[in-house]
Amino acid sequence: MITGVILAICAASGFAGSAVFIKLSLQKIPYSGATIMSLVVSALFSLSVAAILHFDEIIQLSPISFLWFAIVGVITFTGGRSLQYLAINHMGAARSSSLVACSPFFAAILAVVFLGESINIWLILGTTLIVSGVVLVSLSSEKNE
């Protein structure tokens, strides 16, 4: 479990760094070009690492595996990341990151709907705090700049 926690913190640092450098990039490169270029760099780097460490596994993958990879890729990058970059462009890296951080809220809902998990008082309190935070950040984006 602790390994997963440390890896998640590393992932959070990577996403934070990406949000900030995307904002810097958007000062010089329009949104569509920045999205494609960052994805090209990400894909090339990841594929290189995966090919080096898991080549045997890759050549044995079934076609259905690639279908699942495609589904996750489209949801995460064509959907999630493209919209995130649009949000960064509209309201800044820090504010948009705060809102994109609502994903555990949606994950909890998906867990209830698809995995049959029950709602408890902590979930309701957490949801209330998250919605309050989202409203506060939204108000902030309207009042500032």
């Binding site: 992932a11 450098f21 990039s25 960052s38 780097f45």
Partner: peptide
């Protein structure tokens, strides 16, 4: 430069994720 760094950060983020 900045978009390449953003891509690398994101790539590391996704892998660690």
């Amino acid at each position: 430069t900045t978009i390449v760094i953003a891509g690398l950060c994101s790539s590391c983020g996704v892998m660690f994720y």
